[in-house]
């Protein structure tokens, strides 16, 4: 399929981009890596009147490492994060996750802001944000706000972002010494969106644990009951068993080839495997 006709704007400043979005009355869409938006336009699932290309805006990409946070500019590409030793040291989970996002060619263009803004329920980055308790920085022509990961995702491709807002940065907490991370995703083919995926973030003693799932429901999901089962436990088989049992109320949805029940089963498998892979 061919995309319907659209206008193309390539603003040189963030202000200009935000002004374009503010004036567009919801009919403009930001363009980042285009790895999701272009196919959606060709399938005519998206038909923006105007594309506002973010790629020419200086300052929207790149990483700032702060005392306890890492701020990643929205148009920072996966491939740049993959190669960034400082980021990987500050957020080691990123190094575990990135190789599982699509394929190298897509990571060369795809951006972290695009993935967060898109909010594909099977995407890895939204779950990373949720598991780490990160934040999303949103900006419109008139205001700037920071939203916690727990409050950001609403449903399939749905977030609290308003059409005139841009994701300008994604903020992830820096790992503390002895923090540990586990990641596991179940895919039939390397690089696919996950059938079920799990991220576990824990401190050294398992006093604090966050568990996030992707690919099982309508958005990245925290599993708070599973977290409770693991928090303060010895991390042994009984605790893990209880954590898996606690997924009974995880809001799973089926897809074309996998039922909700199977998703829940796979979520349990992914949790066990992610937990067993907890490493610093």
């Amino acid at each position: 399929m061919k995309a319907p006709d659209f206008d193309y704007q390539s603003p040189e400043t963030l202000e200009a981009a935000l002004a374009l979005l503010a004036d567009a009355d919801g009919m403009a869409e930001p363009l980042a890596g285009g790895q999701s938006l272009m196919p959606m336009m060709n399938f005519r699932l998206a038909a923006p009147e105007t594309l506002v290309d973010l790629n020419g805006i200086p300052g929207l990409s790149g990483v700032a490492i702060e005392d306890s946070w890492v701020a990643i500019g929205a148009t920072t590409r996966y491939c740049d994060l993959e190669d960034d030793k400082e980021v990987i040291e500050a957020v080691p989970l990123i190094a575990k996750v990135l190789p599982h996002i699509a394929h190298a060619a897509i990571r060369n263009r795809g951006t972290i802001g695009g993935s967060i803004a898109l909010a594909d329920p099977a995407a890895e980055m939204p779950a990373v944000l949720l598991a780490l308790g990160g934040e999303v920085v949103l900006q419109s022509a008139s205001a700037r706000r920071t939203v916690k990961a727990d409050d950001f995702f609403l449903g399939i491709y749905e977030t609290v972002r308003e059409p005139e807002e841009l994701v300008v940065a994604v903020r992830l907490p820096k790992a503390k010494p002895h923090d540990r991370f586990g990641f596991h995703e179940i895919v039939r083919r390397h690089g696919d969106y996950a059938m079920a995926g799990c991220i576990v973030a824990a401190d050294a003693t398992l006093a604090g644990v966050r568990v996030a799932f992707f690919g099982v429901g309508d958005r990245p999901l925290r599993a708070e009951r599973a977290e409770d089962a693991l928090a303060g436990s010895d991390g042994g088989p009984a605790a893990l068993h209880a954590a898996v049992a606690a997924l009974s109320d995880l809001e799973c949805d089926g897809d074309v080839s996998t039922s909700a029940d199977t998703k829940r089963h796979l979520a349990g498998v992914a949790l066990k495997r992610a937990f067993s892979e907890l490493t610093a």
């Binding site: 399938f43 039939r188 083919r189 390397h190 690089g191 696919d192 969106y193 074309v256 080839s257």
Partner: peptide, 23 residues
């Protein structure tokens, strides 16, 4: 994959899985 009422459900390369070299 078809729905019961004859709608094909996976008409993209993301949903219809072909064998890929990695596997």
């Amino acid at each position: 994959l078809y729905s019961e009422d004859g709608q094909m459900l996976n008409t993209t390369m993301a949903d219809y899985l072909v064998p890929m070299s990695a596997e």
